[in-house]
Design a protein around this nucleic acid. Structure first.
Length: 585
DNA sequence: ATCGGATGAATCC
DNA sequence: TGGATTCCCTCCGA
């Protein structure tokens, strides 16, 4: 990762003294001002007073002149880049297209010398794919595979079915952003959601109006939820309030299994927060990890803490993810802010005894074993790369593949996590939201990407013109062709087009608009009603969520425009069929 | 419309 | 080591 270009000091102050005319009134003409550009006059005031207006223009005033009571005060309006503060270019949205600052490393791949628009990872045929050195190309297994097996392997892998249509949604369901999602293990249409405020939502998306929000389970961020393996009416949740809750979904009755802050708030250096959590049903233990690098275990039968906390990541660093191997119950995977994902043997858990340490360049947001065989690991790192680590066909010293993908860290967003498709028998499909936006026919949208991690190819990008916010939280259904997304405070359920209601039928009946801050309408002349019905809110406040009917759907993309991956097959060819035939191996 | 605030990791000294 | 500072596509609401 190249070091970020440090922000340079403010450009020199421009002092423009109009000596010619008394009336040197400020001019808005930029060109005129450009001409005045140049080395500032000798005696520059040290105490510069420069402010920015909303457009990134700098307004400079010569205060010393003002103080001296000298005549002309010239205000210079000068366009500078809001990112690097240099003139000559401007970063930011131009319409729905974001223009990068050319002085910064590429926002997508983080390499210097080009911008997102021209990033090779954006236009390459194999989008974003950087195969790691193939150390194992020459091994026996692969040789045999290539020479003898491959010709006999059925060339067609079962088609991916992509849920690409929003079929129902709860808008502003949560009062803060969604932080985690979990499908019910047996009831196909129940979705759980946790938020930053500590609330837990239970939503039946088949009967969209049946929903519940439990408010008193936690006091801040719900980081992870898991269903109890022996009772799917109970859920565990790990929160930044330092507790693990156990909640009865029917009644909402909740109890605390563990509280790491029994003495309350003593300052940030002692406040413990719980992040990663998973259940090892084989052993009957709940595993949780905190923001200081420690792992805790709770016996799910007695609901009591077992053993001592173990330091599994750098002391003082946050452990954001835990995952138990689906096949080998003694294997545990952890990841965190020390830039590592680590594999552990549950039978010998002690500091420093990890089986493998998977190095990343930045914080690792998530690390998951592949859902069926557990032999592959998919990690999401804040260096804008997905990594696949293969314990069978590769060794774990380096990833077997790196995929450049835009999922930057932003303190205001829930961290992105690439999630496996639990239904894919080939263990190659993953879903992850995209940070960077794309101009989709005039709207800046942030799609949700489906990536074939065995090839690095983008299989599909799904978006809806009504979802203008980033969707960092995504989960694929364990049995059905359904995707659940959390975007800001809202939840969305996606299904494949074939299975959804025809678009024409998509209407408000499947879209629940929840509260949100009430706009205080000042007593304007009577026209507007005070009716607070959903329809009213729908029209007046749900500016992003006026679900469009088919006819108002965007027209096909204009051909000239440069599109993210537009030249590539995936999205361009998707509309006709939502099935994509992919060849295995 | 515009602006401020919440707030996490990296970096610098 | 720790405190201050900075930060590029947020999102909401005053």
């Amino acid at each position: 990762m190249p070091p970020r270009t440090r922000r340079v000091a403010f450009p020199k102050v421009l002092i423009e003294r109009d000596t010619d005319s008394e009336q040197s009134s400020s001019s808005d003409d930029e060109n005129e001002l450009e001409e005045n550009e140049g080395p500032p006059s000798e005696s520059e005031p040290e105490e510069e007073d420069s402010t920015k207006n909303g457009n990134g223009e700098r307004i400079e005033e010569d205060l010393s002149l003002k103080r001296k009571g000298k005549e002309p005060i010239t205000i210079s309006l000068k366009k500078v880049c809001k990112v690097c503060k240099k003139p000559g270019h401007e970063a930011g949205f131009r319409g729905a297209t974001y223009i990068d600052c050319p002085m910064k490393p590429c926002f997508l791949c983080k390499m210097p010398g080009h911008t997102t628009m021209t990033c090779p990872h954006r236009v390459a045929i194999e989008h974003g794919v950087t195969p790691a050195p193939r150390k194992n190309t020459r091994n026996t297994v692969e040789f045999v595979l290539q020479r003898q097996l491959r010709p006999r392997i059925l060339p067609i892998k079962p088609a991916y079915v992509i849920p690409d249509q929003v079929c129902c949604a709860v808008i502003r369901y949560h009062s803060r952003r969604v932080t985690c999602l979990e499908f019910h293990p047996t009831k196909n249409n129940i979705l759980l959601s946790g938020d930053k405020k500590g609330q837990v939502g239970v939503w039946d998306f088949d009967k969209v109006h049946e929903r519940m929000v439990y408010q008193d389970i936690h006091t801040c961020i719900v980081n992870n939820m898991r269903f109890k393996s022996t009772d799917d009416g109970m859920i565990y949740a790990a929160s930044s309030d330092g507790t693990i809750s156990s909640t009865d979904l029917e009644t909402g009755m909740s109890s605390s299994l563990m509280n790491l802050n029994p003495n309350g708030w003593q300052g940030p250096s002692t406040w413990r927060m719980l992040y990663g959590m998973d259940i090892n049903s084989e052993k009957g233990v709940l595993l949780v990890a905190d923001n200081f690098g420690f792992l805790y275990m709770v016996d799910t039968r007695s609901n009591s803490k077992t053993g001592e906390a173990v330091l599994i990541h750098k002391k003082g660093s946050k452990v954001v993810g835990l995952h138990c191997n689906p096949v080998q119950p003694e294997l545990l995977l952890s990841c965190g802010n020390d830039h590592f994902a680590r594999i552990w043997d549950m039978r010998q858990l002690k500091a420093g005894s990890s089986l493998s340490d998977l190095a990343h360049k930045r914080v690792v947001n998530s690390a998951y074993f592949s859902p069926l065989s557990g032999s592959k690991i998919l990690t999401t790192s804040q260096d804008n790369r997905l990594r696949i680590w293969d314990s069978i066909f590769g060794n774990l010293d380096s990833p077997s593949r790196e995929i450049v993908h835009s999922h930057d860290f932003n303190r205001h967003l829930t961290p992105f996590r690439a999630e496996w498709d639990p239904k894919d028998p080939t263990e190659s499909l993953a879903v992850i939201g995209r940070y960077i936006s794309e101009n989709y026919n005039g709207a800046a949208l942030h799609p949700i990407d489906f990536i074939d991690i065995s090839t690095g190819q983008l299989v599909a990008e799904v978006m809806d013109p009504n979802i203008t916010t980033i969707s960092p939280v995504n989960k694929l259904h364990p049995r059905d062709d359904i995707l659940a997304s959390g975007s800001s405070r809202s939840l969305f359920i996606w299904r494949p087009k074939e299975k959804s209601e025809p678009v024409e039928k998509k209407d408000e009946s499947n879209i629940i608009i929840c509260g949100g801050a009430k706009k205080k309408r000042k007593g304007k002349s009577g026209g507007e009603s005070d009716d607070d019905s959903e329809d009213d809110r729908y029209a007046s406040k749900g500016k992003n969520f006026q679900f469009k009917k088919a006819e108002s759907k965007p027209a096909p993309r204009p051909r000239k425009e440069v599109h993210f991956r537009s030249s590539r097959s995936s999205s361009a060819k998707l509309p006709t069929s939502h099935y994509l035939l992919l060849y295995s191996l």
